[in-house]
Write a protein that binds this DNA or RNA. Sequence first.
DNA 1: GCCCAGGCGCTAC
DNA 2: GTAGCGCATGGG
Length: 299
Amino acid sequence: MNEIILKTPEDFRFSECLVYLDRSELECLHRVTEGALIKLILCLGQCYLIHIKPIGDEKALKIRVLSGIVSDNLQIEAIKSYVKTLFDFETSLTSFYELGKRDLIAKYVIERYKGLRIVKINDLFEGFCWSIIGQQINLKFAYTLKKRLVEIYGESVFFQGERYYLFPAPEKIASLNVEDLKALQFTGRKAEYVIGIAKLFCQGELVEKELREMDSYEELKRKLLKVRGIGNWTADYIMLKCLNINEAFPIVDVGIHNALKGILNLTQKPTLEAIEIMSKAWEGNEAYMTFYLWRYLYD
DNA sequence: GCCCAGGCGCTAC
DNA sequence: GTAGCGCATGGG
């Protein structure tokens, strides 16, 4: 009952996703060890600590439930569904890989990282907060801020000498004031944004189900941009990491710029105009292009 | 000490 | 609608 086998789709390589997941030693919401991922997840209101490792040449994943009681099929299905979402199993990569046959940049990253899938943030509230934390600061400091927030306000379980955390619930963050977060070295602005968004979640003004039902890029973006703290970059980031929008493209993202500079062997980062021109070819596959470009940064 | 970092909101035109 | 500017803070 505490071992679940999940078949993987075509074009999936767990090991490629693991490189992305293992990019920061300061990551506090999962652990990568010996080719496996260990993560505390929330499914049907219950906490499970799961251990995910590929078997049979990555044709399947073996999910072991290390902590939390799995007593029926509903829970098993919920855990499977969580993992499928996390590794974006439902998206077909056919169109993206076709792009690789006619676009040199796409070809370059696809050849190197074939089987990489967008690693999602399943918890939408976490997606909002993480993207706001990451605005205009270096990634290392962003991880530090997230770690402080999670270790103080997130639920956790203790297992074999290690503590594993969930991202704090909106109710928890909504109850804080700006000074609480400034104490963690959030800027006043970021503290306001994060608390404000927590309140919107709690008041039912940001409803996950409603956002997920909007599948038009433009409509969704308009809705996200109304939220204080969400600008162009953040809206696209959330659409990419949480909402399965293939057109999501955070064009001002410094990571994209640096990856393109490296791949194209430029002496300076490309201008926005240049990126707009080259990205015309990526239409409909911008989200995967972005994620593959980010992956390039962790070679 | 300087520039950079997975930007955003506000103002003035 | 958009160009300019202040913000705030750590990393290298």
